[in-house]
């Protein structure tokens, strides 16, 4: 796995300090909002949006609205994070819905997505 670098585990939890610790000097970009129906049909738009923010460095995703999600969506996010990681950026979550947590947990992708551990319980 190319993008899986060693990474400090604390990053995800220490939300408050993250932005200052990150290499990005701009203020954290506005969270990218994942749509309620985050299934395959929504991927083209989501992909475009993610590509648009890729350079921003410290990315925050808002998963609170997600009601429907599929493997394609989670894969897109995994690959997004992989690329972000490779560029030295960071990914954190502004919040996640139960549907998102359930799907990521079931597919074993929570770690690759840097999902907050406590959300998975």
């Amino acid at each position: 796995m190319a993008g899986k670098r060693a990474r400090q585990q604390g990053t995800g939890e220490a939300d408050a300090e993250v932005s200052s610790a990150s290499s990005a000097d701009t203020a954290a970009a506005a969270p990218v909002l994942l749509p309620a129906d985050c299934r395959m049909a929504a991927q083209a738009a989501l992909k475009a949006e993610l590509l648009g923010v890729l350079k921003a460095g410290a990315i925050v995703l808002d998963g609170t609205q997600v009601e429907r999600v599929d493997t394609a969506a989670l894969q897109l996010l995994v690959l997004f994070r992989r690329e972000l990681d490779a560029q030295g950026g960071t990914l954190r979550w502004h919040g996640t819905s139960d549907a998102l947590n359930e799907a990521a947990g079931l597919l074993g992708l929570a770690q690759l997505l840097n999902l907050p551990a406590e959300a998975l319980a």
Binding site: L50, T71, V78, L79, F80, E83
Partner: peptide, 27 residues
């Protein structure tokens, strides 16, 4: 129990090249 989830070699190197309807995951 998911012992391991991984991205396969078939995945494009760049996110921009990803066709979201293609699957590049293994478990």
């Amino acid at each position: 129990e998911v012992v391991r989830a991984f991205v396969t070699d078939s995945a494009p190197a760049q996110l921009s090249e990803l066709d979201p309807s293609q699957c590049h995951l293994g478990w």
